[in-house]
Write a protein that binds this DNA or RNA. Structure first.
Lengths: 136, 136
DNA sequence: TATAAAATTGCAAATGATTTGCAAATGCAA
DNA sequence: TTGCATTTGCAAATCATTTGCAATTTTATA
């Protein structure tokens, strides 16, 4: 069942962080590092618990990048349903991209017809270099 | 530097396991469970250390599946360079498939031209249902 | 405004997979 | 057979994440 939400100082801080990093990906440790500087310091457990709720409510995408041992999160406000497209992640900057274009149909079609594979957006992640990072 | 390799009982057992499961994926715990039944029982640490060496030597692919917290391994003997193609993994049985076909070129081409994204095989993993598991 | 129920927090301890240190055992070339 | 390098076993360490529980805070409502 969906739980009532109380508004708290830390929840506000975290949401503010998300909005300021809407186009980046981050880990629980990143948020913690950013928010613990404040007078009263945030607790890592609190960060995890809030990220979990935000993920459950669909505001965040939580994923594990290739080769990393900790989870990364990214704000998905502008995107509809992350189950219906796959994602690409930059190996260098960690940024997440949503493959929301007509090519998705070609991709799912090819995989199904030639490989009998039913592609699912959830958990599908391509790795590589984004335009910015490959340009350097 | 490359290290000399000594042949041992457990190394042989593990390689035998790989060959008997060449078309499946498995975790360190799977191997451990299978081999600890023997008279003298294998040690989990030994499993990990051998899998690491096999991965380094290119005989195994090591990857973390979407939503799982432990690594999976799969024998890659029959395939050339796993850096040059992406992989698909069945969410149900964990089996790994190599997307080694002409479509790879279309995929990399599309991502580069329309998204400025340089796809890398290493770390790219699509998730979904394989023919066998979706058929059921 | 006071109150009680429900949600949130902090802290320490638990998890679980994987890794590491170190001494003992084993493999192998000479 | 000897000596040295590699492997192994075991216990302890890691590391990110989760959990238990008591204390604190929020919010609806009396």
């Amino acid at each position: 069942m969906i739980q009532k939400q109380y508004r708290t100082k830390w929840k506000d801080s975290i949401i503010e962080y998300l909005e300021n990093h809407a186009d980046q990906s981050f880990s629980a440790a990143d948020i913690y590092a950013d928010l613990k500087g404040q007078e009263a310091s945030i607790n890592l457990t609190t960060v995890y618990r809030n990220l979990e709720k935000l993920t459950d409510s669909g505001k965040l995408m939580k994923y594990k990048a290739a080769g990393e041992e900790s989870y990364r999160y990214q704000y998905i406000e502008p995107y509809g349903n992350c189950q219906e497209h796959i994602h690409m992640q930059c190996r260098v900057c960690g940024k997440l991209f949503h493959l929301e274009c007509g090519f998705m149909k070609e991709l799912t079609g090819h995989l199904l017809e030639h490989h009998g594979f039913v592609l699912e957006g959830q958990g599908s992640m391509l790795s590589g270099l984004c335009e910015r990072c490959s340009g350097k």
